[in-house]
Design a protein around this nucleic acid. Structure first.
Ligand code: MN
Ligand code: MN
Ligand code: ZN
Ligand code: ZN
Lengths: 145, 145
DNA sequence: TCTATAGTGAGAATGGTTCTCAATCAGTAA
DNA sequence: TTACTGATTGAGAACCATTCTCACTATAGA
């Protein structure tokens, strides 16, 4: 099945003369259907341990380099990846300190513009040029309350 | 030299029957005088490679457990630590994508209350119980512009 | 002082991630 | 189609931040 995200990734990679191979498609598909960022190990398990780990890691690196994926450095010794914002849309994260789950959360335009105003004011006061921001909320998820 | 932070850490550890030893003091001192979170390797170098790495890592773990330090998972394969918020005060981070530096940035009460309102609204919409938040701004620092 | 417990340091072990290299695949030209 | 060429893959070794082990030392309390 070819989704719309698949098609967008396809053309993005074509622009950069990077092939959209079977393994890379599996990674994108795995992350497309996830509710939050996934680690290499989680992706590996998610595809029934097809796709060798070395290839999986290489695919993650290639797709990150191509701007298709964004790394998310969460808990200790583990990098999780998610689709880049131009594919999935901007969002923030709810991180459960109990079970460790990271959940995507959409954000309204009103909230987003408020956050952006704060980001811009903080940045300009520090002579910093902001490119993006991440608002991460830690606490207890609905299941762990 | 015994700073005020030193005294606060001292009593916090005393409450928990955890000794405030030479190595632990070196870690707290190193982080007190830093402008952002530091990794184990950075701390190690900062004290002239006194304090063996195994002891340094153990001190970081003990101080984190005691609530004196907070880990910051920023870059790949590297955990940086900073003083907990009750010691250093709440702040946010400017992360330079060019040089990798992480800089603390103070936040005004007005900004903070705006951010907190957004955090609360996002959380309650997701049945999430927020405990803390982190606003991380990525971009170029003044030096790398 | 004696004893029990906490802390230390050197090095081994662990585990996520990256690297190596030979084999295979995909695009291109003849 | 066939031959050529560079990209991609997979198995395993290597890497490196972090954690563990264990014998030794320091400290607090009886
Ligand atoms: Mn996400
Ligand atoms: Mn900080
Ligand atoms: Zn949870
Ligand atoms: Zn910089």
């Amino acid at each position: 099945m070819t989704t719309s995200i698949d098609r967008e990734v396809e053309s993005r990679l074509a622009e950069q003369d990077v092939r959209y191979t079977r393994g890379r498609r599996m990674v994108v598909a795995g992350l497309s259907s996830a509710g939050g960022p996934l680690s290499a190990a989680e992706l590996h398990a998610g595809v029934g341990n097809e796709l060798p780990l070395s290839s999986l890691y290489r695919s993650l690196a290639v797709l990150e380099e191509a701007g298709v994926l964004a790394p998310h450095h969460g808990t200790k010794g583990l990098t999780r990846y998610e689709l880049a914002e131009w594919l999935r849309g901007h969002h923030h994260h709810l991180i459960c300190t109990q079970c460790g789950a990271v959940e995507d959360v959409a954000v309204t335009d009103r909230h987003e513009s408020q956050v952006e105003r704060v980001v811009d004011e903080i940045s300009s006061a520090a002579s910093f040029t902001p490119v993006s921001h991440a608002l991460e909320i830690e606490g207890r998820c609905a299941r762990c309350t």
